[in-house]
C-alpha cells in the first residue's frame, strides 16, 4: 500500500515542492509586471501548497503523527487547509471569470451547457451525500464530514469551471502549454472526484474501498496534476 511506510507522505512532500516552485515562478512574474491576475495565481498556488506542506512536516516529524493530541490538531489544520484549497480554486476561477473581459476566454453555448450540466450533477451528488451522512450516526462527527464533503465538492465545481475556461482559452490561443495545464487540472479533478465518490461508495455498498486507498489515489493524481504544470513550465524554459 502506498500509505504504508510513509510513501504517501513522501508523494505529498513532492507535491508540496512542485506547488511551491510554481508559486515562486508566479510570484517572480508578478514582481516583474505587477499584474494582479498573476498575484492571484501565485496566491492560489501558495494556498494549494499548504495541504501537502502539512504532510511534508509530518514526514520530517513522524513522531508527531503518533501523538493523539497532535493528531487532533493535524486534523483541524487539515480541514482549514482543505478550505484554503477551496479559496485557491475560487481565486483561479475568479481570474478566469474576469479574463472574459479581455475576450481571450469566451464560452460557446456547448461549453456553457457542459459546465452547467457537470456542476448540476456535482451539486446533486453533494445534496444526496449530505442527506445520507446527516441521517447517519452521531451529529458532530457527521457535521464535520458534511463540511469536509462540502469543501471538496466546491473544489470539484470550481475545477470544472477552471477546466472549461482553460479549454476555451486554448481554443482561442492554440498554445500546447495551455493544453498541458488543462490536463493538470483534469488530473487534480479526477483525484478530488475519486476521493469524494469512493468514500460515499464505501458507505453505501461496503465494497471494500478503503479510506487509505482513496487518500493514495488523490495524492498520486494531485502529484501528476502538478507535474503536468511543471512540464508546461519546463517546456517554456522557465525552469532550467
Amino acid at each position: 500500500m502506498i500509505y504504508e511506510g510513509g510513501t504517501l507522505l513522501f508523494i505529498r512532500s513532492l507535491t508540496f515542492f512542485v506547488a511551491l516552485a510554481i508559486t515562486l515562478i508566479a510570484l517572480r512574474s508578478f514582481a516583474r509586471f505587477r499584474s494582479w491576475r498573476l498575484f492571484f495565481l501565485a496566491a492560489a498556488f501558495f494556498l494549494l501548497s499548504l495541504p501537502p506542506a502539512l504532510d511534508f512536516i509530518r514526514l520530517i516529524w513522524l513522531p508527531m503523527a503518533m501523538d493523539p493530541w497532535a493528531l487532533n490538531r493535524i486534523e483541524f489544520i487539515s480541514y482549514m487547509f482543505t478550505l484554503a484549497s477551496v479559496v485557491a480554486f475560487a481565486l483561479i476561477a475568479y481570474v478566469y471569470w474576469d479574463e472574459k473581459k479581455t475576450r481571450s476566454i469566451q464560452f460557446s453555448r456547448g461549453q456553457i451547457a457542459l459546465c452547467v450540466l457537470l456542476i448540476a450533477a456535482q451539486l446533486s451528488f453533494f445534496l444526496f451525500a449530505s442527506w445520507w451522512r446527516l441521517s447517519e450516526i452521531s451529529m458532530p462527527d457527521n457535521l464535520t464530514a458534511v463540511l469536509y464533503l462540502a469543501f471538496t465538492n466546491v473544489s470539484c465545481i470550481l475545477t470544472i469551471f477552471i477546466i472549461i475556461s482553460l479549454y476555451s482559452y486554448y481554443r482561442t490561443k492554440r498554445t500546447a502549454n495551455t493544453l498541458v495545464a488543462m490536463v493538470g487540472f483534469i488530473l487534480i479533478l479526477l483525484g478530488q472526484a475519486y476521493g469524494v465518490y469512493s468514500s460515499i461508495a464505501q458507505e453505501l455498498l461496503s465494497n471494500g474501498f478503503g479510506n487509505q486507498k482513496a487518500l493514495s489515489f488523490i495524492a498520486v493524481f494531485e502529484l501528476l496534476g502538478y507535474l503536468a504544470f511543471l512540464i508546461a513550465l519546463v517546456r517554456l524554459r522557465l525552469i532550467k
Binding site: S29, K173, N177, T178
Partner: peptide, 17 residues
C-alpha cells in the same frame, strides 16, 4: 525578454498580462 517569459507563463494558465 522578461515580458515574453511572463507572457508565456500567463498563457499557460490562461491569463493575459
Amino acid at each position: 525578454v522578461e515580458f515574453a517569459k511572463v507572457e508565456a507563463f500567463g498563457n499557460t494558465f490562461g491569463v493575459e498580462i
